[in-house]
Design a protein around this nucleic acid. Structure first.
Lengths: 154, 154
DNA sequence: CACAATTCAGTTGTGCACAATTGAATTGTG
DNA sequence: CACAATTCAATTGTGCACAACTGAATTGTG
C-alpha cells in the first residue's frame, strides 16, 4: 500500500515504519507544533518560546535553570531563546544578586499582558485535536508514563 | 508544587503547562529520540536518518518526494539529510532517466546490510517504554488520529 | 504546437535541540 | 581557611524542521 511502482520491497516486519509508536509520536508532535503555528504567529512566538512564556505566566521570576527543569531544556537551547524573548520586549534577564551565577527571567508588562491573548489557545487546539476530553486525559497520562520510563532507561 | 521559592504565581488554569497534552507529546517525543540515541550511535545514524533508512529498507529506490511523503518532510529537510547519508556510504542519489526532475535514492550494499544491525532496535525501545503491547498499540492509534485531525485543522 | 501552470529537488535563512566546552560563582571537605 | 568539586549560564558546532525562493523539467490547456 505504501510501496510505489518500481520499488522492490524487502523490509523486515519489525522495522516497518507504520508499526512504530515513536514515529507516530514524532509525527503527531510535529503536527501539533504546526497546528499551533498560525495561532502563535498572532502572538509573534514560536512553540518553544510559547512554552517558556507558559512557565513564566505560572510564576515569575524564574532562573534559567528552573525554566530548563520545567521544560527539559538546557542552557544551550534556552540562552538564545530567552535572548530572543528579551529582544521581543516580553522578558527581562537580570543577574541574581544573592547568587551571581544565576540569571533571573522577569516578565515585562508586555510579556505579562500577552497571556490574555494566549488564553484561548489551549481550547482552540483541543478542538482541533478531534479527541474527547477523556481521550486527551488518557493520552497525556500515558505519554507522561512513557517519557518517565524512557528517561529512566539510559 | 512546581513553583519555586520567591516566584509569584499568577497563571490561569487553562494555560497550566502540566495540563497540556501537546507539551506531554513534545516531551515524550524528545525522550524517545534521546532513548534511541545510544542505539543509533552504534549505527552512526541520527533519528531522522534512521527513519529515512527504515523507509528505504521497506522498498527501494525511492524518490526524494516519495521519502518526503512517507516521513512528512520536505526537500528542505531531506536534501541535506540524504546528502549526509550518501557521504556515509549508505545511499546513492541518482537523477531519474524518465523524469529528470526526480532524484532516486538507492541503498548501497552497506546501506542494505545495516538493516541487520538495526533489527533489534524496535524491541529494545519497546522494552524501555515500560508500556504493555496493548497500551503501545492504543497509543499509536490515538496519535495517528490526533495527527490526522490536527493536519486537517489548518 | 505554444506556453502557462505545476512538479520536483535544492538552497538560504531562522530557530530549535543537544553535545561539548568555557569561565565565573558557590559549595563542600580536609 | 584553602582549594577541589560542583553549579550555573553562555558559547560553539552539528543536525534537524520549515518557510520562502530558485531553476529546471514536465504536464495541462487553449
Amino acid at each position: 500500500m505504501t510501496t510505489p511502482e518500481g520499488a522492490r520491497p524487502h523490509g523486515s516486519e519489525a522495522l516497518r515504519l507504520n508499526r512504530q509508536v515513536c514515529f507516530a509520536m514524532y509525527s503527531a508532535s510535529r503536527a501539533a507544533t504546526a497546528a499551533y503555528r498560525p495561532m502563535l504567529e498572532e502572538l509573534g512566538l514560536t512553540y518553544p518560546q510559547y512554552l517558556a512564556m507558559l512557565v513564566l505566566w505560572e510564576a515569575e521570576p524564574r532562573s534559567v535553570r528552573e525554566l530548563g527543569e520545567e521544560l527539559g531544556l538546557d542552557s544551550g537551547t534556552l540562552s538564545p531563546l530567552l535572548k530572543r524573548l528579551e529582544a521581543l520586549g516580553l522578558v527581562q534577564r537580570r543577574r541574581s544578586a544573592e547568587d551571581e551565577r544565576r540569571v533571573e527571567i522577569f516578565l515585562t508588562d508586555a510579556g505579562a499582558a500577552l497571556s490574555a491573548k494566549a488564553s484561548g489557545i489551549p481550547q482552540r487546539l483541543a478542538d482541533a485535536a478531534g479527541l474527547t476530553p477523556a481521550e486527551l486525559d488518557q493520552l497525556r497520562e500515558t505519554l507522561g508514563r512513557l517519557a518517565s520510563a524512557l528517561q529512566a532507561s539510559h
